[in-house]
Amino acid sequence: MHPAPSVIIFTTLSGLGFGLLAWLGLGFPEVTGWVAFTFFAIAYALAVGGLVSSTFHLGHPERALLAFTQWRTSWLSREGVVSVATLLVMAVYGAGLVFWGESWRLLGVIGAVLSLGTVFCTAMIYAQMDTVPRWKTPLTPLLYLMLSVAGGALLAGQVKAAMLLLPLAAAAQVLWWMRGDGAFAQSGTTLATATGLGGTGKVRSFEHPHTGSNYLLREFTFQVGRKHATKLRSIAMLLGYVLPFSLLIMPFSHALALVAVLSHLAGVAASRWLFFAEAEHVVGLYYGKR
């Protein structure tokens, strides 16, 4: 799949932002006043920044409001509805903390559930795709949720929780990669089933429909990523999990915490780039690309 920068930025930033909102909703850390304002400002900047960035790849962003209508069937629509609900609920909860020093616990818990619900919806947009076997697994929402919760803990300054969750997220990541590498072969979709011509012999793409490129080739048969996959996976592992974890072991300082967060963010971004760049869409079969 073509790794669109807007979608990578969106899923990386908003995943982290909603993870932080979930921790804030549960009262970790229990903050009020200006400190609460700072935490909420960071969370909203990440979550809303991500959401806004996701509209950049739309052909007609001015019609985006229509995307709230089809929540009965569409995970993308559900994501829109749940994310707005989260932002509204957490805004009220945050206002209570910032302006009145009040912690409306029930509201916070609802906001935390909605935050993780948003991340789940994002993951399901990919996990529902029968056409991309690498994504079609319950491990995809697990990975997204683990990353969001671990990154959120890191941002929320929950050192103990982060030291537990970062290795768990790393494990989910490795599991997701291991399963993903065999997923296309496992799916049973081949050029033979795609053309129905497998009965008489071995099928080979002889000629493409046109000599030029097209939307399908640009969007679905991206291959650059696979060349550097191992290197990028190592970078994602190192920056996303190993380095932040090592920094957490050291005596706490704000500077080190900032480095840990930035390193984690870069690692997750690398992993998210691979998430798209390595994903093989079955339509590539018709072009002899798999």
């Binding site: 790849h57 739309l58 052909g59 079955v282």
Partner: peptide, 26 residues
Amino acid sequence: SACIGCGLCAWACPYGAREMDAAEGV
């Protein structure tokens, strides 16, 4: 007139039957 050009339907189609028009964004 209701299409936002998100491209998700093209992702969901295994046959490559849908193509985003580069000029019109639908």
